[in-house]
Design a protein around this nucleic acid. Structure first.
Lengths: 224, 224
DNA sequence: ATTTTTGTTAATGTAAGGTTAAATGGCAAT
DNA sequence: ATTGCCATTTAACCTTACATTAACAAAAAT
């Protein structure tokens, strides 16, 4: 997507040669249509485009997807343009003419970062809770690097759910449906029993507590 | 939706001129049918309507949707009507004849409030009241960053409603219908008990008080 | 003056949550 | 098959939380 009608084609060929799958749009309008239709790992926009300038397009893309990396391409090395670009959610900036090697490197870095972010779902399974480390995949809870306590499946899932909502409300019904797959009087009592067990484990760090919000659910809070 | 067959058309044109998208119903029946079919940001009802009066319509609308703002329009400035309006869940009241500028302002304010509410969830649940912080989602009240006091569901909802009307009148009937979903002698007494409880909590900040407006409701004021 | 509304405290009944122990039931080792 | 172990559920009992109602005092309206 750019002004010089040849440059885009050249860039596309160059990237394709380097094993990227590229979709080329001739202008901002077309770019947005294509963006809506498919999933892309990266967008490269030219600031100067017919029909719809790069900033506007970037803004629209950001509205649809707040994560996709955006690189701006421009002939102008003007500072206010760079700022404006970052403001609408650009990830990087490149001046035309530019070293094709540099572009390749940047693309690689961005896609790499994206990949590692999504791979390390570790975020979903490893939590710091005050001085505790919870490893939810291996089901253990460690205090200050001391020796880990094994957690039962239910203990583990419940603590994980609480940690996912740290400092916020974890509604009773959410835990019951997610962990017990049924919400009735007995599962509810069972859950209370597990809350008691977790509180016992967590006593080692007096900053950490599980608070009850009557009729609503529980709240894992870490003070200070 | 109104009695004077011309007035509705005039109002519709006026609002349309001011860039609002308006659907006009000739009576209460038609109004309810249209309400069920589409989503509206705001309802303006005339108390006097053929076939189905404004109060009945408001009640039906409230059953379907407890959030949509309702403004009553009436020639009568009678107090019992105003009260009845709040009882069935109105958000505001306007006497005919009225200043069209005032109506526009109110509409703008209501829609604005709605918009910001849906954008930032936190705004719906977090209030500053003098030196207090009310977190209405987690049901606690904190004084000057001290340790939070837990609020019961009723305490919480009542204080939240007062905060939403800060410095303004919160009509008795509004609280009773929104929180107690019933307006009778006993719920009214119950509410008074909760007002007393809230006053006790709020004593910590002498600038904050809940005033009674005899026969009307309460007013949460923050002095200075 | 008297009726209505509001302020406040205490009493009551019910529901929800905290905690411990016993019962259940699956599973693996014997 | 029997045993013992473990995670989980159920039971039991107790405490806390919550909302309502009653009762009486004070304030405001009529």
């Amino acid at each position: 997507m750019e002004d010089d009608p040849n440059f885009g084609t050249v860039l596309k060929d160059y990237l394709t040669m380097n094993d990227y799958e590229v979709t080329h749009a001739k202008n901002g309008m077309e770019g947005f249509e294509k963006f809506k239709k498919d999933d892309y790992d990266l967008c490269i926009l030219d600031v100067m485009m017919p029909y719809k300038d790069g900033f506007t397009l970037a803004k629209e893309i950001r509205e649809k997807n707040k994560d996709v990396p955006i690189i701006f391409l421009t002939a102008k090395a003007m500072k206010e343009d760079v700022l404006k670009g970052y403001k609408v959610g650009a990830d990087d900036y490149l001046n035309k003419p530019f070293d094709s090697e540099v572009l390749l490197m940047k693309i690689k870095a961005i896609i790499q970062r994206k990949a590692t972010e999504t791979i390390s779902d570790s975020k979903q399974f490893e939590f710091k809770i005050g001085h505790f480390d919870l490893n939810s995949k291996l089901r253990f809870l460690k205090f200050k690097g001391g020796n880990p306590v094994k957690l039962s499946p239910k203990e583990n899932e419940l603590l994980r759910l609480l940690a996912l909502h740290e400092n916020d409300l974890m509604p009773r019904a959410l835990a019951l449906t997610k962990i017990w797959r049924d919400d009735n009087y007995f599962t509810s009592r069972s859950m209370d029993v597990y809350i008691a067990k977790l509180r016992k484990y967590l006593k080692l760090d007096e900053r950490v507590e599980i608070l009850n919000i009557h009729g609503e659910g529980f709240r894992l809070v870490v003070n200070q």
